[in-house]
Amino acid sequence: MDFEGEYTMRTASNQQSYEPDTVYPDAVLNIARDSASVFQLKRKWEKTPPMLNLTPDFQRGLVWKPKQKSELIESILMGIPLPLIYVKEDEKGVYVIVDGKQRLSTLFSFINNEFALEKLTILKDKNGSRFDKLTPLEQNKIEDCSLTLHVIKAPTSDRVTFDLFDRVNRGGTRLNNQEMRNALYQGNATELINRLAEKEAFVEATEHSIPANHMKDRYLVLRFVAFYLWQQHVTIDPDTDGPLDYRSNVEDFLGKTMRFLNRLEPENGLFKELDTRFTRAMELAIRLLPSGGFRLPSSPGKKRPINMAFFESFSYLLSRLNGEGEQLHCQIQEVYMQLICDAAYLESLTRSVDSGKQTEKRYEIINRLIHELNLC
């Protein structure tokens, strides 16, 4: 475990510690059945901007080998139906391919004459053939091949969506929720999160202990961004156009935050504010917190991992501070010691950390300290 709370970013089937009544508060699954030819999907992919996202930022393991690619083409020429393709439709109507990326990549690549068929055991006479060497009838058979798509549409929640993604991909690489979220909501949000996660101040404040693999570092940064905006009453719910509420469903909460950020113009001052506040919080943590500052107390000789909820909430406190000086620095250190001795605060960091009750408690304590000590 790289940080306490890491389980909250696991694949949907491995989630833990959800309150029973909030696992699926809005278990609406809106899947539309659609069909399209290979040629139609290729045309969507080649539009500017593309209407089919074939390269979401997933890490799905090895790319198909030449024999697998060739056998897919052989199957179509033989009239064998292909498996379902799952896509997520984003707000702009773009299809994000979730299950079927290798098949579509292979088909588009072959039509573009990028590889020749090889090691075929049934249609042996086609070995060595590229698309332009097939007969017109065979070319039409590939381009006109009808594919069945299951399109996940709104208002399917992120938690339900991630669970579905996990189920249809259990035979392959298991993606955690942050990897899927990063693929679904590319844009301003991912650019901001990537930039913040790469800052040396963040890496140093977290003691070089949060790896970039599986986007664990991005997950911590996104939580800071989402809860900062929520506490500042900035985030607008993209589904209702009203203030974003937190209702124990962290997957929808984080996803909606990313969608909100993606709707803003890149020049919006909010991005600079988040960058400045986050950087200041990390720099203050480096200067003023003891070694292992985002780790909870442990037994002598033992060292606990960084605590996710502690990082997220105390970084919010640090980000709100203005000014400098010895008095401020002493106050920060005093508040820090007060918090790690506060039983209610510690419980909110270790038990049902994403429940509405514990989240409200955590930030109620943080905000009370900010205002009592007049730190902002």
Rank of each mutant, 00 (worst) to 15 (best):
P243E: 13
G255C: 09
E273A: 12
A189E: 04
G172I: 07
S209C: 02
R167N: 12
R170T: 14
L222A: 06
A189C: 08
N177G: 11
G187A: 08
L175N: 01
F165P: 01
E273F: 03
Q232C: 09
P211N: 11
L184E: 10
G172R: 05
G171M: 09
T235Y: 07
E204A: 14
D252E: 14
G172Y: 10
P290D: 07
V234L: 12
S291R: 12
N194K: 14
L289T: 02
I286Q: 12
I286P: 01
G171Q: 10
N268G: 08
M282P: 01
F271N: 09
I236M: 12
F278Q: 03
K216I: 08
V203A: 08
N177D: 12
R218H: 14
T206N: 05
R174T: 13
R280H: 12
E200T: 13
I193Q: 06
Q178R: 11
E265Q: 15
L254I: 07
S248E: 05
A285M: 02
F224I: 07
N213Q: 12
D237P: 10
L261K: 04
N262A: 09
N268D: 15
M282N: 11
A197K: 11
E191P: 00
G172V: 08
D239T: 09
V250P: 00
T206H: 02
V203H: 08
R174A: 15
R247V: 13
P266Q: 11
T190F: 03
L284N: 10
E198I: 07
A201K: 12
R174W: 03
R181A: 07
E251S: 13
Y246Q: 04
H208I: 00
M180H: 00
G187S: 10
S248H: 09
A183Y: 02
V221K: 01
K272Q: 15
D275P: 01
R287V: 00
K272A: 12
L222W: 03
G269V: 06
S248K: 07
F224D: 04
G292C: 05
R174L: 13
L289A: 03
L244Y: 08
N213S: 14
G269L: 14
R223I: 03
